[in-house]
Design a protein around this nucleic acid. Structure first.
Lengths: 273, 273
DNA sequence: CAAATAGTGTCTCTAAGACAATATCAC
DNA sequence: GTGATATTGTCTTAGAGACACTATTTG
């Protein structure tokens, strides 16, 4: 038997077929809607960042931002790099939602993709609004069951995409979907978005990262809105406040000029570490 | 601009560097210990399957089973294939725990690995005990905090491996570790095992897959033992029974000849679908 | 009967949900 | 005062944990 050194210098990776590997980013954000009544708090929507493809394949289709993994980086670093390139913003959180490796998912060849959920806080989005030449837009998300299927609707002004999926398995609390109709989204991105949203919702129950959608200080009503918007539920303020009380700490500041009683601003309380 | 067909036929994947991709399996099992007293129920240990490497690199070291992804399969299919090849058993469950892509993790070159937790039920393990020529063994797991670090101890008879890790981040409830001392385990497998165990424990709280460790019918005490062994806790029988009551259904059968009161055998109740 | 596990009843305490009431600002 | 949201108090109920007790087998 050869020595380890001999083995390694004789080893040729090219002898085996290898896929290209990408990281795709499902960047979520809570978007405040315009309000008719300036005294009323703005309604909020969950939205996702899509980019209009400027090249083949799926030319002109909307797709998730993403890019190829380089040899000198981890997939997390790659994902972070892609978010920053695309949004000029450092995301508050990054969570892997799995490797998508279905043969044929990319017409260019054997390309597998690790998808990530990334959370962009409202505050930071303003920095880059309209600074990028690429056609990147935030689409409001609606994801609902309709006679057996899951329908994912994405809207931005006049543009409206409607993908239809089926829930195929729910292994270990992780839900997976199959595409019935991509709704015009590129690649298997409808499936990736559905999976990412499902993971986001699972986690929102824990309050752990609802903070990442907000600026450093926030009102408890804003925080409640984030959870309600993500999970598509509504809870009573009294109960919500009781539950998050241990996770936040007061500041001295209050909201101003909202046309109604000002709200105390809170900050996330760091528990351990 | 060329047409999509022209673009695709001109596209050359070889122009970009590509990693090799593997699936590594962390196969868990609940192992019943030999008992001194035949009237006493056997104690149980959580154990993991390791394989002694017969080639370079890490020749002679213990490593997780795994193998390269083929172009015509998904990473889940690859993982399933590897478990079946290695254990001759169809695992009860398979859950991804993430992509390990740290540059330099494999001395052969750029090789990234998606790790999976797989659960093997005690019943099925007997089928294959000792049928494989390869040196594959089940190691009992101990994973405990020791002055700031996490120590992972794996034992099988005389063989004892002791890896030291540090918790580096706990993003979205998923805990990640860095290796301080690999304890003789190949590659970054100490880290992968720690991450997988952490994911396994997180899920055991939900009862969702503690069933997968057991045969089709089981006693409630066995079920309780599985949860206690995985999570390294102990709960009161009355309370455990109350909680799982909705998840199981009675059978007509009882355990026999145990030297004490027989226990009713239960079966998992399928709730939805 | 003794050893050992199987299984049940019930008390307490906490947390979740529902509801009602009060507080405070801009106009 | 009115509109709108902010904030607090408390009742009820479901569930978790603790503890004590009874039941059933083999030797």
């Amino acid at each position: 038997m050869p020595s380890e050194q001999e083995f390694l210098s004789a080893y040729r990776q090219d002898d085996y077929p290898r896929p290209s590997v990408t990281a795709d980013i499902v960047a979520f954000r809570i978007r405040a809607e315009e309000s008719d009544n300036y005294r009323q708090n703005a309604a909020t929507k969950l939205s996702v960042l899509l980019i209009r493809r400027g090249g083949h394949p799926f030319l002109g289709c909307w797709a998730l931002p993403g890019g190829f993994l380089n040899p000198n980086e981890t997939i997390e670093q790659c994902a972070l790099r892609e978010v920053e390139e695309e949004t000029a913003v450092k995301p508050a959180a990054l969570m892997s939602v799995g490797l998508f490796s279905e043969p044929g998912r990319d017409p260019r060849g054997w390309i597998i993709s690790n998808a990530f959920v990334s959370i962009i806080s409202e505050e930071k989005v303003h920095w880059q609004s309209g600074d990028d030449a690429a056609d990147a837009r935030w689409f409001d998300i609606q994801f609902e069951r309709e006679n057996g299927d899951e329908v994912l609707s994405l809207t931005n002004g006049d543009i409206s995409l409607r993908a239809v999926l089926t829930e195929v398995s729910s292994n270990f609390g992780k839900t997976a979907y199959a595409i019935k109709d991509s709704g015009g989204l590129a690649f298997d991105h409808a499936r990736i978005i559905a999976t990412a949203l499902s993971a986001l919702r699972d986690g929102a129950r824990e309050f752990d990262y609802i903070f990442d959608f907000l600026p450093e200080t926030f009102t408890l009503t804003q925080l409640q809105n984030v959870q309600e918007t993500i999970m598509n539920i509504s809870v009573l303020p009294a109960n919500f406040r009781r539950k998050v009380a241990a996770l936040v700490e007061e500041t001295d500041a209050y909201t101003q000029g909202a046309g109604h009683r000002p709200a105390k601003l809170y900050r996330r309380k760091l528990l351990k570490g």
